[in-house]
Design a protein around this nucleic acid. Structure first.
Length: 260
DNA sequence: ATTGTGGCCTGCCCGC
DNA sequence: TGCGGGCAGGCCACAA
């Protein structure tokens, strides 16, 4: 599903629409419009204008307009971005491998004949004008060791839940978090505030390295643990039967032998 | 404030 | 062969 690595790929693709004049807005799905905005208001705000900058905070993609407000795009767990008929991510875990235009929930047409489409079978994403960003924590790729220590604090909440709390650190979803904790050898159910200084450093190092490596591989589903995230999965490192639990409200796989 | 829970959405897969 | 139930999780509302 789109976690920060997928949205980062979407951002790079969206950068190709900067400077192109918007001449049409197609928003056929009212449910997909968030923040109380209507299709008409969106058309008024966008038509005749151009995007001048692309930004990403966690899983939120922001396209700044030439006259002030920003268009916010969210992709839920099955949303994809297409520009001029091209997609930057071919396969999405848990989404459909079919590719059906009826799943286009939002589209922009440009004066040069191209277009930008948000294709989302499950309709869990959304489009918003000037979305609030003050409720998002620091982007996970910008997290320093001290920042990570602050994110975890003295919390008694499970380590995994704290890492997936978008208000504290933005961008980490279920698959990335499982992969990072598996690599770092940390039990996702541990109290977030219980890490020793050495464990904190180890987590920070694996967090950055995992984001970079999986980003290069092509997404959050390309982790070493991914193939074993199944009911009878075994740990790729030591062969132990993986634990399958619900932590932070999400299905969680971890190794009982080396994640302590 | 912190933490946990349930519901939203719909395609897909399994078992009958 | 069709059908029903369970599952996936990002996000938000709500409760204790």
């Amino acid at each position: 599903m789109p976690e920060m690595l997928e949205v980062e790929a979407y951002r790079r693709l969206a950068a190709t629409v900067l400077g192109r004049t918007i001449v049409g807005v197609d928003a056929p799905d009212g449910w997909f419009l968030k923040g109380g905005i209507t299709a008409g208001q969106l058309t008024d705000a966008l038509c005749g204008h151009r995007f001048v900058a692309d930004r990403r905070i966690g899983k939120l993609l922001l396209l700044d307009l030439d006259h002030g407000p920003a268009l916010g795009l969210r992709f839920g767990m099955t949303g994809r971005l297409l520009v001029d008929g091209r997609a930057s991510i071919d396969h999405l875990e848990y989404s459909s491998d079919r590719d059906d235009p009826v799943w286009d929930r939002f589209a922009l047409a440009f004066a040069d004949g191209g277009d930008l489409r948000l294709r989302d079978p499950r309709r869990l994403g959304g489009v918003e004008l000037d979305p609030r960003t003050d409720r998002l924590g620091i982007d996970a790729l910008a997290l320093t060791p001290a920042g990570l220590r602050e994110v975890l604090g003295a919390s008694e909440a499970p380590l995994k839940a704290r890492l997936m709390d978008q208000a504290r650190v933005a961008g980490l979803g279920n698959l990335l978090t499982d992969e990072i904790l598996w690599r770092a050898g940390l039990d996702p159910a541990r109290a977030a505030g219980s890490l020793s200084p050495a464990e904190l450093r180890r987590l920070h190092r694996h967090l950055g390295a995992t984001l970079r490596e999986l980003g290069e591989r092509g997404g959050s589903h390309t982790g070493d643990l991914q193939a074993m995230r199944a009911r009878d999965g075994v740990c790729p490192r030591d062969g132990a039967r993986l634990l399958r639990r619900t932590i932070g409200g999400r299905t969680t796989y971890s190794c009982p032998v080396h994640q302590l």
